[in-house]
């Protein structure tokens, strides 16, 4: 059972209150009908699935109800940080520098 920091509740809470919601920063195209089949396929199905740092979405589904974003290491299963939906993708290198 992981502990996850909800950026809306500003509290670190047990995993059963949360639900995973797939990769982050994949916005629905404003006009899907204008996309080629290839572009639409990429939006629908293609995900990065990295070994290591992963930008992903979670929902504090049994808490405040909000979707938010997280950076998690898929090897260690450790969260680097969480941030609110709609905020830009954090610069990981800058974060690491700040930590050092």
């Amino acid at each position: 059972m992981l502990l996850i920091h909800c950026p809306y509740c500003d509290d670190t809470l047990p995993e059963p209150e949360f639900a995973y919601a797939g990769e982050a920063h994949i916005a629905r195209p404003a006009d899907p009908m204008a996309l080629s089949d290839e572009e639409w396929k990429n939006f629908l199905f293609i995900r990065s699935n990295p070994r290591g740092t992963h930008y992903e979405r979670w929902r504090h589904i049994h808490g405040c109800g909000r979707f938010f974003n997280a950076i998690r290491d898929t090897v260690s299963d450790k969260f680097v940080m969480t941030y609110r939906a709609g905020e830009p993708r954090p610069n990981l290198d800058a974060l690491k520098e700040a930590a050092e």
Partner: peptide, 13 residues
């Protein structure tokens, strides 16, 4: 409900 919340919160806030 979860799917609707997802679209509402993240696509059409």
């Amino acid at each position: 409900l979860n799917m609707m919340e997802d679209y509402l919160q993240t696509e059409w806030p």
